[in-house]
């Protein structure tokens, strides 16, 4: 495997740079995926039938905490990659750990939020609006959960193998994924919660 020392570690081999490019293409496919979900949501948003509307169930508090957690975690994963580029394994592990913990907290709050909705009688089966809400939020949440598992596996590999072209590549790709989820959340925050509360 040829290693090009002039490039950052995560780009150092041809395979690595292909993987990063491939992941960008994958994110390119995630855009129509979420765009479709948003379209479905926006079509359904007024079709709440006999169930509650967004205004009646959304609470701004937990949503703000979720937003804060996810935005900060996007910052810490950036710090982790920065540390990785300088070869600071320990700092990288710490920042990545913080990122994942914040992700976990986000999932926890989201699950609590879902439980509250269901408790209030707003379930997946209640109305077209709620179906689309649960599936949109759920898809994002499933991405975050998958990211948590994936990130944990990468952290374990870095802990065992150290920072090398293979692990650096994985960590960098993970950071792209995490930033992407953040962007999606900003759209959810604006088009679901803010629009719903207004």
């Amino acid at each position: 495997m040829k290693i090009d020392a002039s490039k950052p570690l995560e780009y150092a081999t041809e395979e690595n740079s292909n993987k990063i490019f491939g992941f960008w293409v994958f994110l390119g496919a995630e855009i129509p995926l979420f765009a479709t979900l948003f379209t479905v949501y926006l079509v359904m948003v007024d079709r709440f039938a006999s169930g509650p509307s967004g205004k009646e169930i959304f609470e701004i508090g937990p949503v703000l905490i979720e937003t804060f957690l996810l935005l900060s975690s996007s910052f810490t994963i950036g710090l982790a990659i920065h540390a990785m580029r300088h070869g600071y394994k320990k700092a990288m592990m710490v920042f990545m750990g913080i990122t994942l913990l914040m992700g976990l907290a986000f999932i926890g709050i989201e699950i609590t939020e879902f439980f509250t909705y269901v408790h209030e009688g707003a379930t997946l089966q209640t109305s077209g609006f709620l179906s689309s809400l649960f599936v949109l939020l759920g898809t994002h949440g499933a991405h975050v959960s998958f990211g948590f598992l994936w990130g944990s596996v990468i952290m374990y590999q870095i802990w065992r193998q150290g920072i090398n072209p293979a692990t650096a590549n994985k960590a960098f790709i993970f950071s792209l994924f995490w930033h992407f989820l953040d962007v999606v959340w900003i759209f959810i925050f604006s088009f679901v919660y803010l629009k719903g509360l207004m």
């Binding site: 479709t36 997946l124 089966q125 077209g128 179906s131």
Partner: peptide, 26 residues
């Protein structure tokens, strides 16, 4: 990805009783 979403919604409607393409409840 559009098919992925469409099929997922179909699955939710058929298996979990969601209300995307039903004739009632929006």
């Amino acid at each position: 990805p559009v098919l992925t979403v469409a099929l997922a919604l179909m699955m939710f409607d058929r298996l979990f009783g969601s209300q995307f393409f039903t004739m009632a409840n929006g």
